[in-house]
């Protein structure tokens, strides 16, 4: 049960990463690898502030701002200096590795003895269940696990709601249109460059925020924790797309969150069945590869069938 709850919680926390990747990848078709660096950046900033006694909420918001700054750099490299998308992301991601080490002061920063959001989650769980542990469908559940799940679900809900509202504003719609048809939205007076910069800011802000929550949930920040996270986000976005199938902002956001949770659950089950944790990234990469080429193959098969 703990395993399942934790898979749900991590799935929800990482759905914020997926929402970030949704903005860069689905809205702008921009494969923004900065995410690998900014999730760690968020974790590092939050962890470092927490160990200095800063309030968990302030620390998490600071992590969001840090991620925005990282996205700003990538956006400026790409739009002002005309560096290609992937390379802009790689440059910022690489730079962030050193920055993260500086921020943390060491390669791994434990958060076991400080007050974090998880502390509040535990209080929340205790208040909800009335005890340090309760039973759910006959399984023992700790107050910490229950509280973390409820808290992360609430946070994700609120952020998804804000994102949905944003994408239906004049500004947010102009952003969606920038990704959909550059020529058109330019002709309607929008600077596509500014939209990309703003979009990458928000995207990486969300990613870093996910990093901050993840660090507080697992109780440490690690300089390696970001490796391959972009692929994770892509997997979630692709699953989400398959689940909902439409392009409306609401459906896409919901799908992305569902995709993230579902993907984490699949991984948890696979690990349970004996998947070697070392193979996790490999499996994820293969999965995304499959999801990217499958539609193409289907198309071929279909046109083949139609031709014969």
């Amino acid at each position: 049960m703990t395993l399942l709850l934790s898979a749900w919680t991590i799935g929800l926390i990482l759905s914020l990463l997926s929402l970030g990747v949704y903005i860069s990848y689905r809205v702008f078709k921009f494969a923004d690898i900065t995410a690998d660096g900014s999730i760690t950046f968020g974790a590092a900033v939050a962890a470092s502030m927490l160990t200095h006694g800063v309030h968990p909420v302030t620390s998490s918001i600071a992590a969001f701002a840090a991620g925005c700054a990282a996205g700003l750099c990538t956006g400026i490299l790409h739009t002002r200096f005309r560096i290609n998308q992937l390379l802009s992301g790689i440059l910022v991601m690489t730079a962030l590795y050193s920055i993260n080490l500086h921020v943390m002061g060491q390669s791994n920063l434990p958060l076991l003895s400080v007050t974090t959001l998880t502390t509040y989650a535990q209080d929340l769980g205790r208040w909800l269940t009335g005890h340090d542990s309760a039973t759910l469908f006959g399984w023992p559940v700790s107050a910490r696990d229950a509280g973390s799940l409820v808290l992360s679900a609430a946070i994700v809900f609120i952020i998804a709601l804000i994102a949905w509202l944003f994408f239906n504003t004049n500004l947010g719609s102009a952003m969606r249109a920038s990704g959909d048809n550059e020529q058109m939205i330019r002709a309607l007076g929008v600077s596509v460059e500014n939209m990309i910069v703003l979009g990458l800011c928000i995207s990486n802000g969300l990613v870093a925020f996910a990093g901050a929550l993840l660090a507080q949930y697992q109780g440490f920040a690690d300089v390696q924790m970001g490796i391959g996270m972009i692929v994770w986000g892509l997997a979630s976005v692709i699953i989400g797309r398959a689940l909902t199938g439409t392009d409306s902002a609401g459906a896409a956001l919901t799908g992305t969150i569902m995709g993230s949770v579902l993907f984490r659950l699949i991984i948890a089950v696979a690990l349970r069945w004996g998947l070697n944790p070392n193979d996790l990234k490999l499996v994820t990469a293969i999965f995304v590869f499959g999801a990217l080429v499958l539609p193409m193959l289907m198309q071929k098969v279909r046109s083949h069938a139609a031709a014969s």
Partner: peptide, 17 residues
């Protein structure tokens, strides 16, 4: 699409589209 065009050249803020 039409609502986007209705704001051609105007500031685009956080009002609803």
């Amino acid at each position: 699409n039409l609502a986007l065009a209705a704001r051609r050249g105007l500031r685009r803020g956080l009002g609803r589209l």
